[in-house]
């Protein structure tokens, strides 16, 4: 998988929150605020606690998802504008206890307190049983700073 446009990578690496949408059984969008993780392999990763796992059912049924980063304070890279990414998601949950821990360094870069909380996971055990959602981007819509009209569109399905 190739890397994403520089502005999009910068947003993904900085954002503390993204709007993440899955489609329910009636094909209606269901939106969740999620912390996006990017490790440079062209895919976007999210981790979802089993406590809030309804979205995982929806992805299994319909993997088409979208994710956007729109909040300039929660994503402190205002000069990069806002972005929406459409793609296919895959749920990786064979080992909810430890199967997501490889993403911990990327998570800790955004929330430095997280490793300490994971170390004390006995205090909130089910929250730390997590699935990984891996999103393969198909189309990216990038609105440069101040722009809310026509976005720059990157179609990644073409090669």
């Amino acid at each position: 998988m190739s890397r994403l446009p520089e502005a999009v990578e910068a947003l993904l690496e900085a954002a503390l929150v993204a709007e993440f949408t899955v489609l329910n059984e009636r094909n209606r969008p269901v939106v969740h605020p999620m912390l996006p993780l990017y490790v440079g392999d062209g895919r976007i990763y999210l981790t979802s606690s089993v406590l809030f796992s309804r979205k995982l059912y929806h992805i299994r049924r319909n993997p088409r998802v979208a994710l956007s980063i729109t909040d300039p304070i929660a994503a402190p890279v205002e000069r990069w504008g806002t972005v929406t990414i459409q793609g296919e998601a895959m749920v990786l949950d064979e080992d909810p206890h430890a199967g997501w821990l490889w993403l911990l360094p990327a998570w800790a870069r955004k929330e430095p307190d997280i490793p300490r909380l994971v170390k004390n996971r006995w205090m909130l055990p089910l929250f730390w049983e997590r699935a990984v959602i891996a999103i393969t981007p198909r189309r990216i819509f990038h609105w440069p700073p101040g722009g809310t009209g026509d976005p720059i569109v990157y179609d990644l399905t073409e090669g």
Binding site: N27, R28, P29, A66, T84, F141, T148
Partner: peptide, 13 residues
């Protein structure tokens, strides 16, 4: 947020 013609959810800020 809506579902676009290609069947993906779409977001627009």
């Amino acid at each position: 947020v809506w579902v676009d013609e290609s069947g993906y959810p779409m977001h627009r800020p």
